[in-house]
């Protein structure tokens, strides 16, 4: 019941926004538009898996390097794919491993050196950006092969390959969270590390693994992003960092750690994406767009907080 309570505000918000969208923008509910919104939500959703894991691990957890990691894999990994599905899977594996490696570096800083996650991941993000520039000499991957671009192909309208993969990953993550030992260890570590230690959980290991997972998913997202865009630019992933934090918050995850749901974060991502799409469709000045977006974000978060307080 508690988990359902987490859903409701964000589901409610998405429904309200979609209705508003249809009223303001004719053609909003068209199949093509919906499938595009779902794809963008899927991308952000994969990012929220990463961010949610980091935040749930507690200790003021957050991962501000996810955008940089995604940019890195987006500009580097497409080189590995030319035309076979085998190469595609290999590229995803490499992307994930790059992300995990960076995540492990974050873990070392956070667990061993006791650097606050905010600062460690922030600076790690800058290091990754610098490394990306260094490795590519400013020129990202040459061509995004058609097979990578096919992530945008429809399976059953309005669901495209990217959307389906994103949903599958979110569902798997959710199952892992609630059914596996690691998932439960993660939640307990985030909620009450002292109690977790008494239970015999190695909180350092669990906390460290959280950032490795976060990095891994960010890496995967980057490659999907490259396929979605069909072209690569150097800072493709950077805007997704703070967006993923906002989506996780809208999804009801406690920023202090220990409570959260991946599916709920996906709904949070949906809310953000619908909001952004509606604002894009409006024929107003960019400045007005930003003001409206900020105000609505505050509104959504206040409603979120208020509804959680009522439940507890």
């Amino acid at each position: 019941m508690d988990r359902l309570a987490m859903f409701l505000p964000s589901v409610g918000a998405s429904i309200v926004l979609i209705v508003i969208g249809q009223l303001i923008v004719p053609g909003f509910m068209s199949i093509n538009n919906i499938s595009s919104i779902l794809m963008t939500t899927g991308l952000l959703g994969i990012m929220t898996i990463a961010q949610n894991t980091a935040i749930m691990s507690g200790n003021n957890g957050i991962d501000l390097s996810v955008g940089s990691v995604a940019s890195l894999t987006a500009v580097v990994c497409p080189l590995l794919v030319s035309d076979t599905v085998g190469e595609l899977l290999f590229a995803f594996l490499v992307a994930m491993l790059i992300g995990v490696a960076i995540g492990l570096m974050n873990s070392v800083g956070i667990q061993a050196f006791r650097i606050p996650p905010l600062i460690m991941t922030l600076i790690m993000g800058s290091v990754v950006d610098g490394a990306k520039l260094f490795v590519t000499k400013g020129s990202p991957a040459t061509r995004i092969s058609p097979i990578l671009q096919s992530v945008s192909d429809p399976v059953i309208q309005p669901f495209r390959i990217l959307t389906i993969f994103a949903v599958i990953m979110v569902v798997l993550a959710e199952l892992m969270l609630h059914r596996s030992r690691f998932g439960r260890a993660l939640l307990l570590t985030g909620d009450n590390p002292g109690a977790a230690a008494i239970c015999g959980i190695n909180t350092k290991l669990v906390g460290g693994a959280a950032y490795a997972i976060s990095g891994g998913f960010a890496g995967i997202m980057g490659l999907f992003l490259a396929g979605y865009a069909g072209a690569t630019t150097m800072s493709m992933g950077s805007s997704y960092t703070l967006l993923s934090v906002a989506a996780v918050a809208i999804g009801g995850t406690d920023l202090a750690g220990g409570k959260g749901s991946y599916v709920s974060c996906l709904v949070g991502a949906l809310v953000l994406t619908v909001l952004t799409t509606i604002l894009q469709a409006l024929n107003v000045q960019e400045g007005v767009r930003l003001i409206v977006k900020g105000l609505i974000l505050i509104l959504i978060m206040v409603v979120n907080i208020y509804s959680h307080r009522r439940k507890s």
Partner: peptide, 25 residues
């Protein structure tokens, strides 16, 4: 029919164009 900002980004331009195609076809 409409005018929007693509922010010199391929992804944003893609999203804006998708919205326009859905709206105006």
């Amino acid at each position: 029919l409409a005018s929007g900002n693509g922010n010199y980004s391929q992804t944003v331009a893609q999203e804006v164009m998708t919205t326009y195609l859905s709206t105006y076809g």
